[in-house]
């Protein structure tokens, strides 16, 4: 998913990995992987174009003895276990591609070794009042060893949530995954973390910095809007280490007469003729004359015709919005998908 005008969510984890000097990364894709594969078309953006290591993309493949899609996170690893077996690195980091954060994995690994843990789970203490029921909820003892782990409970008993980032020894992982597969279990959280929580030493590493998961529309909207805050922008975009992404070679943004922008992020390749307030515009957005855009997210390559009003909305990428349209969501964020015919000269 595109984040903060110029990035995609996977850039954050890949950048954190390259900045932690991890050289070998495997990406498992399955759901609607076209745009992701395109984004990962070259490993050079994250400095993964190496002779030692590199970026590997694994999609489900039909073989003579297996024709399943990935049936779960553990199954995705199981289906590509040969890759793990043929590697020689002692540790494995498992992370999802939908978190927005910066993390030094070396610190997590140091912690993992210091605690003599079997598995370390990166977790984040959420602000009180935050709805945490859609996450994995963790309860630890005084030593930070995980006592309880509940996936999406009805009532959360703590506000520490799992970030979906794990460190585990490679051999240990192979062993657990193989056992899982034998028992026909496929989910890493349910069938490994929760099942083994008393048997294995599982520790929680508390992340200090910004972390957000973009699983829901609301989360997605809020995460993007967070980038309008100077301290968040400074943390992600101006402080070392950087976040890397695929380079697009777009011209700088252009503001024609009649444009009026306030408190907004504008990306490369945009051409703006109208008014934009409190919004995030992704790359190559065209805003026509006399438009009014407020509190909205406009994704990549959207064309907005003249005299259009958009408020509290997310406009899907490659959309074409006809002139004189009116979109105003009242109490929740609305997603606009419009693929009207566009004429390119």
């Amino acid at each position: 998913m595109p984040i903060a005008g110029s990035y995609r969510s996977i850039d954050f984890v890949l950048s954190s990995m390259t900045n932690s000097h991890i050289q070998k990364v495997a990406v498992f894709t399955q759901y609607n992987a076209g745009s992701l594969n395109e984004h990962l078309s070259s490993s050079k953006w994250w400095d993964f174009g190496r002779k030692q290591g590199g970026l590997y993309v694994f999609t489900p493949a039909v073989t003579s003895d297996n024709n399943y899609w990935y049936r779960g996170t553990a199954d995705a690893i199981y289906q590509n276990l040969a890759f793990l077996k043929n590697s020689h690195e002692p540790y494995v980091i498992i992370a999802s591609g939908d978190g927005v954060y910066k993390l030094d994995f070396n610190k997590v690994l140091e912690y993992h070794i210091e605690k003599k843990a079997d598995i370390t789970v990166v977790c984040k203490e959420m602000e009180p009042g935050e709805e945490v029921e859609r996450y994995g909820i963790i309860k630890t003892d005084d030593e930070d060893r995980i006592e309880e782990f509940e996936e999406k409970p009805v009532v959360a008993r703590s506000n520490t949530v799992s970030c979906g980032i794990y460190i585990i020894r490679r051999r240990q992982l192979i062993e657990l995954i193989e056992k899982c597969a034998e028992e026909d279990r496929h989910d890493f959280v349910r069938d490994i973390l929760i099942r083994y929580k008393s048997l294995k030493r599982i520790y929680g590493y508390r992340m200090k910095g910004y972390w957000r998961n973009i699983a829901t529309v609301d989360d997605y909207f809020r995460t993007n809007m967070d980038f309008l805050k100077p301290e968040i922008r400074d943390y992600f975009l101006h402080q070392y280490p950087d976040i890397y992404s695929k380079v697009d070679d777009l011209p700088p943004a252009k503001y024609n007469a009649g444009s009026d922008i306030s408190n907004s992020l504008i990306s490369a390749g945009c051409i703006i003729n109208g008014s934009v307030t409190d919004s995030v515009l992704f790359r190559k957005v065209f805003v026509g004359n006399n438009c009014y855009i407020r509190n909205s997210i406009i994704l990549n390559d959207v064309y907005i015709g003249d005299n259009t009003h958009i408020e509290n909305c997310i406009v899907e990428s490659h959309g074409t919005i006809r002139a004189n349209s009116y979109h105003r969501a009242e109490d929740r964020i609305e997603v606009i998908v419009e693929s009207n015919e566009r004429y390119i000269i």
């Binding site: 005008g5 980038f227 309008l228 922008r233 890397y244 503001y255 007469a257 922008i261 306030s262 934009v276």
Partner: peptide, 14 residues
């Protein structure tokens, strides 16, 4: 790479 930020009270034309 990052996008540009146009603050409140700013004005950009042409």
């Amino acid at each position: 790479l990052p996008p540009q930020f146009i603050a409140k009270g700013a004005f950009v034309e042409g």
